[in-house]
Design a binder for these strands. Structure first.
Length: 874
RNA sequence: GGAGGCAUAGCUCAGUUGGUUAGAGCGCUCGCUUCACAUGCGAGAGGUCGUAGGUUCGAGUCCUACUGUCUCUACCA
């Protein structure tokens, strides 16, 4: 049979889509519940349906695919559950925006109409991101694809809500929450992003009601003063404590408000007096609760002043700020205006400044849930990689506040709470009740709010596997093995999955969380739409191939660290793919039809043993590294082995044997095929396409590399001593090349070699290598040569004479040898220094001391040869 | 205010439990169209591993302080 002819340059576009379809058709992504196997499960961090695949996804998916493919080849029942997130606030914002362009509002369509439109949107765009994932080579089990708003996930959400409510862990109440005036919904604390903004500090006078003077205080938000219901001072503050209980007149509003004493006030800051606006500041709200202060909301949903704001009603909050300041100044209440920069909370979706306000919302009581979730990480049931994220997690969980889960949105899981139209009684249940338990009537309306999108994401590891039903999948694949995600969503998502899983399934959701960093641009900036510095992974795939992109994303990457992405790096990866391709071409064009399977020959040459020893330790190390999530290190080792050891050395070494033909050639072919096939298997998780293409071109039996058996370390392939012996030949070749390069001798100019050595057999057997790799015309080996006027190359095990006649410049040669002598002297000094240190010989481990002794021995031998060579120069 | 990361070659970064003379890619210099590959081959230059101490026979690696830098987090009105 004729071997497949490969093109000179690897073209991923000819390969990738074809192979992906082939894998899909053969059902290779599909995981089966198999009691004979150990499950290995990853659930995808579901991308938003509105989303476009960006570099962050590409990194995330690549890492997951590497782990899944690796474990699949190791024989695990490897399941990667894919899916998407409905992303309530982000999606709704996009749809509303699209509608606005058509002159439509949500209210125009009504809830039903809006949802219809939203589902259309999902149909149109939800599939897009899935197609993009496929371009990367993601080996997800698409038959198990899920969506956070699908029937099963919705079932899980309702079940969880009702359970938590019945346990008293979900409650509804008037609390101060973060309100986004643009998205027109509450958002959780985690969804607020703080940014430093320049503002002002307005110093104001609030006069005492009895006319005996005034209190001076400062505020950054004068427009909220219409909602002031007190002024607070520290109860221990000598300046003010006698005033507690008196009242002041709220300027502009002419309302009498009390002076209260509260330890929240920092005596050292400002004047030590704080105006209290319980409806619009989280701290003031707390103070208000402690002192039973009235709560006066002065703003509307879209952050305009409301009727409680008197003459400012109808103004936008910033407009009102100006007007209030102007009035205060005019009426003499403004003492001074100071520049002040402060942290302003903004909405993580639309960056609008959020408005803290009091409103009736649903909350999850966090303390009882947080505790077991902290313990699970502390006792190692959930392991973070790298470990440092433990601290960040503890810090958040230990200071966690109740989670506001209701959103004033339509796109999402509607809260399963029903109110009796007649008596107002509330019933929380998975299905709408038919009869009111209080009044017996039967008309209900459901709560208008939906749930925070993260409420459903928190259930993702088990809701996707069928929970609350005890499905076969759930029993077999849960808890999942590894969660791969960016450290930026540790609070939003990772923490919430942990406490949700523990509460509802009694188990951790995953055993390990493998965190990666952000992908930044070449200058180290965050890739963002507004900067326009984002690189589209799909463009990269198109131009360089998915393998090159994947390789780029893992190479030199270490867990939890940000990385820079540049096209330059992709080009290097593409070159690597091409290198592999050409190594394969070389093997295939030399591979005889007689070889029909991958198997080592019965007799191995010394260079075979050398390469197999290297290969064998590569197997061990790469496996170890992958198991420890050291993907960057594993990739580096594969790269070095393939490029340096396999291509630059071993392939070159086989050339003379391949030309010799017969048994000699066949044996070399077998070793080449064996090493190449094994290396492709180990590289497959990282570069799935090219490795599959190569695998199928090799006599591997016709199956897919995806489901081939991962290489294992073999004691019988460890030829330590013989491998070391071959190293002597390599050292000599390098030394000769070095000397020739220094003299600018082109490879075309061949020269005789006279090798003086105590290992004559080793060097004699390397004759062909010296000819091919060190430009030797003939090779002579002996235990002694007397020769003048020759270039002399000294290695640990040999002294090589190269008679080059007129090319030799005695002075230069002398300088070169003296330089080597100096370097060798330095070595000897250093090693001797160590060995003469009694503390070292006494305390260092025996093998280290022995190592140093060997080093000294070699260096001394080497020195003797160098001295002889210098003497020979005359 | 609290916490954490990072600091290694001109640039971007690796460096696993402390153990040879600290590595790679890109860039640079010299030579090479050698029958897999110029997306290549051979050779080379380039580093007091941020600073100062400490632990250790031995520190890029562990500890302390400092400097620079980035990030997260927090209620300073």
């Amino acid at each position: 049979m004729a071997r497949k002819q490969l093109d000179k340059v690897y073209d991923p576009s000819q390969v990738e889509d074809r192979l992906y379809h082939e894998w899909e058709e053969k059902g290779l992504f599909k995981a089966e519940v198999d009691p004979k196997k150990t499950p290995y499960t990853i659930v995808i961090p579901p991308p938003n349906i509105t989303g476009q695949l960006h570099m962050g996804h590409a990194l995330d998916e690549t890492l997951q695919d590497i782990l899944i493919r690796f474990r699949r080849m190791q024989g695990f029942a490897a399941l990667w559950v894919p899916g998407t997130d409905h992303a309530s606030i982000a999606t709704e914002a996009k749809i509303v925006e699209a509608m606005r362009k058509e002159g439509l509002s949500k209210e125009d369509l009504g809830r039903e109409g809006f949802l219809e439109r939203a589902w259309d949107w999902k149909k149109q765009y939800g599939g897009r991101i899935v197609e993009q994932l496929k371009k990367l080579g993601s080996s997800c089990d698409w038959s198990r694809e899920r969506f956070t708003l699908d029937e099963g996930c919705s079932e899980a959400v309702k079940e969880v809500f009702v359970r938590l409510y019945e346990k008293g862990l979900i409650y509804r109440g008037e609390r101060i929450i973060n309100w986004c005036p643009k998205c027109q919904t509450s958002i959780s604390d985690a969804e607020v992003e703080y940014s430093e903004q320049a503002g002002h500090f307005w110093h104001l006078r609030y006069p005492f009601a009895d006319g005996s003077g005034y209190l001076e205080l400062a505020t950054t938000r004068p427009e909220t003063m219409m909602g002031d219901t007190a002024v607070a001072v520290h109860p221990d503050d000598e300046r003010y404590k006698h005033l507690i209980g008196k009242t002041v007149i709220l300027p502009l509003m002419n309302r009498e408000i009390p002076i209260v004493g509260d330890t929240y006030v920092d005596m050292k800051f400002g004047t030590g007096v704080v105006k209290i606006t319980p409806a619009h500041d989280p701290n003031d709200f707390e103070v208000g609760l402690r002192h039973n202060l009235p709560i006066i909301n002065v703003m509307t949903d879209d952050a305009k002043m409301n009727e409680n704001a008197g003459k400012y009603a109808g103004m936008d909050r910033y407009e009102a700020r100006k007007a209030v300041v102007a009035d205060l100044e005019e009426q003499g209440f403004l003492v001074e205006t100071e520049d002040h920069s402060h942290n302003v909370g903004t909405c993580y979706r639309c960056s609008t400044t959020v408005e803290p306000r009091v409103s009736k919302q649903w909350f999850v009581k966090m303390e009882p849930l947080a505790k077991p979730a902290i313990d699970a990480v502390k006792n190692g049931e959930v392991k973070f990689v790298p470990e440092r994220f433990d601290k960040i997690y503890y810090n958040w969980m230990e200071n966690i506040k109740d989670w506001c889960i209701s959103r004033q949105l339509w796109w999402g899981h509607r809260i399963p709470a029903y109110y009796c139209d007649d008596c107002g009684e509330m019933v929380v249940a998975k299905e709408a009740p038919t009869v009111c338990p209080k009044c017996g009537k039967s008309h209900f309306h459901q709560d208008e709010d939906t749930l925070d999108t993260w409420f459903s994401s928190a259930l993702w590891p088990f809701s996707t596997l069928g929970w609350p039903n005890q499905t076969e999948d759930l029993k077999y694949f849960y808890p999942t093995s590894t969660l791969v995600t960016g450290y930026d969503i540790i609070f939003f998502w990772v923490a919430r999955m942990i406490f949700s899983a523990l509460e509802h399934t009694g188990e951790v959701p995953f055993k390990t969380v493998f965190f990666h960093g952000l992908v930044r641009d070449a200058q180290g900036r965050k890739m963002s739409k507004s900067l326009g510095n984002g690189i589209d992974p799909l463009e990269v795939v198109k131009e360089y191939g998915a393998d090159a992109l994947r390789f780029t994303l893992v190479t030199g990457n270490s867990p939890g660290n940000d990385m820079r992405f540049s096209e330059e790096k992709v080009r290097a990866s593409r070159n690597f793919a091409n290198k592999i391709w050409n190594a394969t071409r070389f093997v295939l064009m030399n591979l005889s039809d007689e070889i029909t399977s991958i198997a080592l020959p019965d007799t191995l040459t010394v260079e075979d043993k050398w390469v197999l020893t290297q290969y064998n330790s590569l197997v061990k190390e790469v496996t170890d590294n992958l198991e420890k999530f050291e993907l960057g290190i594993a990739v580096q080792k594969l790269y070095d082995f393939i490029w340096d050891i396999l291509c630059d050395w071993y392939i070159e070494l086989t050339k003379s044997r391949l030309q010799a033909g017969g048994e000699t050639s066949l044996n070399a072919q077998k070793v080449l095929a064996f090493v190449l096939a094994g290396t492709m298997q180990m590289l497959h998780p990282i570069m799935p396409f090219i490795t599959e293409e190569i695998w199928q071109a090799l006599p591997t039996g016709g199956g897919s590399i995806m489901v081939s058996k991962w290489p294992e370390y073999r004691e019988d392939l460890n030829f330590g001593a013989e491998s070391d012996e071959f190293q002597k030949v390599m050292d000599a070749i390098k030394g000769i090349r070095n000397a020739r390069a220094q003299m600018n001798v082109p490879p075309s100019k061949k020269a005789s070699l006279f090798i003086e050595t105590n290992s004559p057999d080793t060097f004699k057997s390397g004759e062909a290598f010296f000819q091919r790799l060190a430009s030797a015309s003939e090779v002579n080996v002996s235990d002694h040569y007397e020769m003048e006027g020759a270039v002399q190359v000294v290695t640990d095990s040999a002294r090589i004479f190269i008679p080059m006649g007129e090319l030799i410049d005695r002075e230069k040669e002398l300088a070169r040898l003296n330089k080597e002598k100096a370097a060798c002297e330095k070595d000897i000094q250093m090693v001797q220094g160590k060995l003469s240190n009694e503390k070292f010989t006494a305390k260092a481990p025996a093998n280290i001391v022995e190592q140093e002794r060997q080093k000294l021995l070699k260096a001394n031998e080497r020195m003797a040869k160098i001295l002889e060579s210098i003497a020979a120069l005359g």
